[in-house]
Amino acid sequence: MAPLPVAVGITVFRPTPAQVAALCARVEADPRLTIVFDNGGLPPEAATGLKQRGARVLSEGRNIGVGGALDALARAATAAGAAQVLLLDQDAEFPPGQVAALEAALARLSASSPPPALVGPRPEAAPGRKAPSAPRRPEIPDDGSLVPVEFLATSGSLIDLAAYARIGPFRSDFFIDGVDLEWCFRAWARGYGCWMETQTALPHRVGAGVIRSRLLGIEMPRQPPFRMAAYLRNSIYAWRLPHVPRRWCLRQAAYLPLQALLYWADAGFRPGILAGLAGGVLDGLRGRLGRPRGLPS
């Protein structure tokens, strides 16, 4: 049997009724195989409705984090015979028709050197949010509308599953933040490229608003304390990984203290917040990863 061109993998966590309805509508509108990973909170009747519409619903009965969910989706897509998997989260407004642009981009890049690991849309900020960063990869030329990037948000990314098998799985011990960054840096180090298709875009809804400082010249998503601590932890731990470029480590060494200060100020300089951030930093230095402290049950 010829491989399916693309399977769609969607991670959900405590979806709202509106998100469930949008997901069901998407499954009905897209002839591609859709695999949903429930990281917790998907109502049984919603899971049944998705299955009745042709989706496959996976779950381990608990929150295993973003990295673990993405790997489960990639494995299931591979087992189903797909050649690529489009990864989305429950907020993604990425109509089935847009997927064709990424399929065409991946096909264009198939003969390039290095070969592509993924191609994804241009990140945009949903109203009141901050778009994820997608810094340009130095010394690699553009290919028309395709731009090489250091890393790209996994939501909206079309992953080549043969490349995934060689690059290795996403880091489940990072749990939530930095999963996409680490995997893309590893892809480049192992002879694959990560690309952004600038002619198609995906709005992102990271966090619950934006924290800005004109004085410091930075802005960042407003996240719950456990997630900010996990972001600091994973960023600092990544500095020890040989495939993470030194230029990125130096940039983060200057940027992270400013982000932590801005976050603490936005939280009213509460001592408990500072203690949580410091705990994340220490966990990163000591290599204590996995389920973040303070993660809601």
Rank of each mutant, 00 (worst) to 15 (best):
F151D: 08
I167K: 02
G61C: 10
Y164N: 14
L86T: 02
G54I: 13
A117S: 05
L118W: 00
V149Y: 09
G68V: 01
G128D: 11
P141G: 04
E124T: 11
P132W: 00
L152Y: 03
A101P: 03
P135Q: 03
A80R: 15
P96V: 02
A153V: 06
L70P: 01
L87H: 05
G68A: 15
P96I: 02
R166L: 14
A111K: 09
R122I: 00
A83V: 12
P141D: 06
E124Q: 13
L58Q: 12
D89C: 06
L87V: 03
G168C: 12
L86N: 03
S110H: 04
I64F: 04
R166N: 10
A76V: 06
L161E: 00
D89N: 01
D71I: 06
I64E: 08
R129M: 15
L50Y: 15
A117D: 02
G97R: 02
L109N: 02
R108K: 12
P95I: 09
F94L: 13
G120H: 06
A55C: 12
A131R: 14
A100H: 06
R136H: 04
P141F: 03
D71W: 11
A101E: 10
A101K: 04
E103T: 11
P169S: 07
G49C: 14
I167P: 04
S157W: 04
A55T: 15
A83C: 08
Q90P: 03
T48E: 15
L50F: 14
L152W: 01
A153G: 04
T78M: 06
R137S: 09
